[in-house]
Design a binder for these strands. Structure first.
Lengths: 140, 140
DNA sequence: CACTAAACGCAACTTTGTTGCAATAAGATG
DNA sequence: CATCTTATTGCAACAAAGTTGCGTTTAGTG
């Protein structure tokens, strides 16, 4: 139920100790409802009707959600940030799949990017961004 | 010698069958001289003195070099494209390392991204972009 | 040397995201 | 529940990266 998600989102926002605002709750709610990484635009579209919030506010809310660890910010090759709600036991250390036809981004939980890649001597590992590209099941 | 590089660049451009213009030769020349992936701005800076070319032209030249396979276009998390000359036996199928301090990007030839990652059923692999992040030898 | 299509340069535009600041409202306090 | 404080929001303006349209220049051909 949509109400369930909103309650869940509200609770998560409350736990941060910061203010519980409609923008934050609704945005997180939208992200929790998705099973994939969505763009700023997609989020905006899904918010229509629930509440009208400024472009800038959405950017700031997403930044805040990211800082608080409630959401995961993903870089892509089209210069567009994508966001995904951090479901429990779903850390940053995983790869993503981007369909070259429908451009949808999903998580590849089977691949662990925390694995220590072979680096040249003297290099220090911090993390990795892996995006596998191809066609998803619907577009193949 | 710089002249050697320019001759090499000229030859590579000629082989494509398209026009051999100063913009193309000089730009490729700059990229051949680098051992790493450089941004549009870095290329512009290195061209100063040799020839003054328009921002747009540089974008178009880079796009062309990329189409012709002479150069490799790399996405990063700062929404800036980076380019690297395709040295022989240096295919697209490898990973990159980005230093989180000096932001320089180098190639990790030890990692082969052509490897077929475990994808969900029905998914079709086309390629992968892997960027490992951390500190390089100089910054560590 | 003349010709023609491919490249180029300029100006204007688009997309994605950021900054400054005044107005608003969440939540604490009395 | 009225008031107060300050975090959050909305608006406007800005910034960086990249693209598009179009008239001008030039590489390569005859």
């Amino acid at each position: 139920m949509a109400t369930d998600l909103q309650e869940h989102a509200k609770e998560l926002v409350r736990r941060t100790g910061d203010r519980v605002t409609p923008s934050r709750v609704q945005t997180l709610s939208v992200l929790l409802a998705e099973q994939r990484a969505v763009t700023h635009h997609e989020i905006e579209a899904r918010l229509q009707g629930n509440l009208q919030l400024d472009r800038v506010t959405l950017y700031r809310v997403l930044e805040w959600l990211s800082e608080k660890g409630l959401v995961h910010k993903i870089a892509s090759d089209d210069r567009v940030w994508r966001f995904r709600a951090n479901v429990e036991a779903h850390t940053h250390q995983h790869a993503h799949f981007k369909c070259t036809r429908c451009t949808k981004v999903t998580c590849l939980d089977g691949i662990d990017t925390a694995h220590h890649w072979p680096l040249p001597a003297g290099y220090h590992f911090q993390g990795a961004e892996l995006t596998v590209k191809g066609l998803c099941a619907e577009c193949a």
